[in-house]
Design a protein around this nucleic acid. Structure first.
Length: 654
RNA sequence: GCCCCCUUAGCACAGUGGCAGUGCACUUCCUUGGUAAGGAAGGGGUCGUCAGUUCAAUUCUGACAGGGGGCUCCA
């Protein structure tokens, strides 16, 4: 190999020698093929994402990114963010730019501007952005020094950009990379596609407020959300998919299936209908039975506590604004002193459980002591944060606290993780585990944290579950494992949690008598599996699109008599099912058969039982499941067979 | 709490500075029908609340409330 050549290894393992300094674009055209050269967006060179204009100056591996690559869409969405920013600055002079990253669904760009963007503005920006795509401006990359960069953005009056540039160089960067297209320049790590024409199509979605650097004390910026696709067809498909996702929105289905409602008189608090309450209590019962079978004790504790408890737990200082004070007359001079008090609703069960633990002497023989409660909790969430069932002010958790010796941690966490995996599997919910370690504001010394993290992680490893490491994301009182599931629209929700707590036993001065007859400090594990019943039901509604499995369905079967003459047998069928503990009703609307079946289908009842002459004669039922046509009709069967089938499906799966 | 948008019958939505509309649902009557909508008639609204502009406001303006999309936060 001559001095002027470098060897490039392609993903298929083949190697090509090329003159050093050849750009990637040139290389692809001459050494691979014009088809790929045309499709290429950027490349990875020894694992680093680079522009096609990058010269090949050393031997290494090269992979070309095209619209078909997984990274391709993210790349053009980044291009799209630049295009939108350039258009906004042209249409709205004086608007300052800040940052514009991509997201899973598209991208956003934050602008500083006094007047908010209107929907009409968005439409104009979108039209102009798509015109920029048609104009097909090349993206041009240059590198500048700190001084040049600062001079440029100061001249443009971009104070947010100046701030970021200062930061970048303060962190040790030697140069700053700029990208220009159509005469508009922004700095950016890159890479970008060869030109704006490669983006395809841009759609702007919404405007929202966002804070500079995500801190609510900072300036409020205007965030424009958008997305981009290579083709209009792909965009249309995405829009369609969004509409489908909206159809299973739990707030919509909650109304349509008559599961729950809200009233302005109690924002953020749920009115559960008969149907919704059945789902709620079924979930409660399932969790209760599982806890009982796994060594838990269910207890009920007060909902209201005076300041004494909150001062002890530490909530009075930090969490007070999130608590509902039902009585706040501590400093009221118009009241006699013995009538003054500060009483609030509990926002969580932990302090109640700690008080319960310390009410009597505990022996090491009682440990692990597992306390479970499903009490009603209240948190005064910010009005803007409330959302359907997923963020409410009044809720119930499947909460438990396990008091144990340090030597028992690994075993207990393993048991818990298995329990959680079993429950999520029963719902067919995909989940991911995250292991969060000591945060910067941790309490307790490093030796303690070393021990806690090692114990928790060892248990997690032993379960064999894959997990993601979240360094510094733990609670201030201990490390934790969080469990996330994804809903139908791809939003991720934190459901279960296992948290190790060394602080609470100190604050509450908890102890147990060890085998050595001396008092020792226990450790506490906080855990929840559903998270909260409210949020969990919201996620389940979307997960099942309202088609609950039989054990959770509020109405498990609906009897549809063909004529009023069949009511007699219908009532006998109903009685048999009710006697078997099943939830069933008779449709007495005596409309057309098709209409009654349609009603049952829309109500998403798992089984519709048509009862007519045939069924009366055979003393049987003809069940029908979801869907249209013949495959939904299960045909005539004996009542005994159907009762057995339905009862089997109604069994709690965990 | 902050930014933007929305609020008309139980639900989904039209509409207008001058008597409030449609579909579904609901009630009654007719229809007794075999696997996703049979027909007719009828009832139902302080057009979110409170102010302001106007001869006149559901419509224009403002404030507030509730809801939605985000930010912050979070089970």
């Amino acid at each position: 190999m001559s001095q002027a050549e470098v060897t490039i290894t392609l993903p298929d393992g083949s190697q090509k020698a090329v003159t050093a300094g050849t750009t990637i674009a040139e290389f692809v055209k001459t050494h691979i093929g014009p088809g790929l050269a045309k499709a290429a967006l950027c490349a990875t060179y020894d694992g680093e994402a680079v522009d096609l204009s990058r010269p090949l100056d050393h031997s290494g591996t090269l992979a070309i990114i095209t619209p078909k690559s997984p990274e391709g869409l993210d790349l053009v969405r980044h291009d799209a963010a630049h295009i939108v920013a350039s258009v906004v600055q042209r249409l709205f002079p004086g608007t300052q730019v800040t940052i514009g990253p991509t997201t899973d669904e598209g991208f956003y760009y934050d602008f500083a501007r006094d007047t908010p963007f209107t929907p009409d503005d968005l439409a104009r920006i979108e039209a102009e952005a798509n015109a920029e795509i048609k104009a097909d401006h090349p993206f041009v990359r240059t590198e500048v020094s700190r001084e040049e960069a600062l001079a440029l953005f100061e001249k443009l009056g971009e104070k947010f950009k100046v701030e970021i540039v200062e930061d970048i160089f303060a962190k040790g960067a030697k140069t700053l990379t700029l990208y220009s297209h159509g005469g508009w320049t922004d700095f950016c790590l890159g890479p970008h596609g060869p030109s704006t024409g490669r983006v395809g199509v841009i759609k702007l979605l919404s405007v929202a407020g966002a804070y500079w650097r995500g801190d609510h004390r900072n300036a409020q910026l205007q965030r424009i959300y958008g997305t981009a696709f290579f083709t209009q067809k792909e965009l249309d498909a995405w829009v369609h998919q969004q509409e489908e996702a909206r159809k299973r929105d739990h707030r919509k289905l909650g109304r349509e299936l008559d599961l729950f409602a809200f009233h302005p008189a109690a924002p953020g608090a749920v009115f559960w209908t008969g149907n919704g309450t059945l789902i709620f209590t079924e979930l409660q019962g399932a969790m209760r039975r599982m806890c009982l079978a796994n060594g838990y004790v269910e207890i009920k504790t007060p909902l209201l506590y005076n300041k004494l408890l909150w001062e002890k737990s530490g909530h009075w200082g930090k969490y007070r604004e999130n608590m509902f004070l039902v009585l706040d007359s501590e400093a009221d001079p118009s009241l006699p002193e013995d009538e003054r008090a500060s009483i609030s609703l509990k926002p969580m069960n932990c302090p109640s459980h700690h008080l319960f633990y310390e009410m009597k002497r505990r022996s090491y023989r009682e440990l692990p002591l597992r306390l479970h409660s499903q009490d009603v909790l209240h948190r005064n969430e910010a009005t803007g944060a409330l959302s359907g069932l997923t963020r409410v002010r009044q809720f119930q958790q499947d909460d438990a606290h396990v008091y144990l010796m340090e030597s028992q941690i690994t075993d207990e966490v393993k048991r818990l993780t298995q329990l959680i995996a079993k429950v999520y599997a029963a719902f067919g919910l995909e989940f991911t585990a995250k292991f969060a370690t000591r945060p910067p504001n941790k309490l307790g010394d490093d030796a303690l944290w070393d021990k806690a993290e090692a114990a928790l992680q060892a248990a997690l490893v032993e379960t064999g579950l894959p997990y993601e490491l979240k360094p510094g994301d733990g609670a201030f009182y201990g490390p934790k494992i969080d469990f996330d599931v994804a809903d139908s629209i791809g939003r991720k929700w934190q459901l279960g949690t296992i948290q190790l707590d060394y602080l609470a036993p100190e604050r509450f001065d908890l102890g147990y008598i060890g085998p050595d007859n001396a008092v020792h400090r226990p450790v506490v594990i906080h855990r929840a599996i559903y998270g909260s019943f409210e949020r969990f039901i919201g996620i389940l509604i979307e997960h099942y699109a309202g088609n609950f499995p039989v054990w959770l369905a509020p109405e498990q079967a609906r009897i549809v008599p063909v004529t009023v003459g069949h009511y007699g047998w219908a009532e006998q069928v109903e009685a048999r099912l009710l006697a078997a503990g099943l939830r069933v009703s008779i449709d007495r609307s005596h409309g057309k058969l098709g209409a009654m079946i349609r009603d049952a289908q829309l109500a998403k009842v798992p089984y519709t039982l048509v009862v007519g002459d045939k069924e009366v004669e055979a003393q049987g039922v003809s069940p029908r499941t979801h869907g249209t046509g013949k495959e939904a009709d299960l045909g005539l069967q004996s009542l005994d067979a159907f009762v057995a089938k339905l009862a089997a499906e109604a069994v709690v799966p965990f």
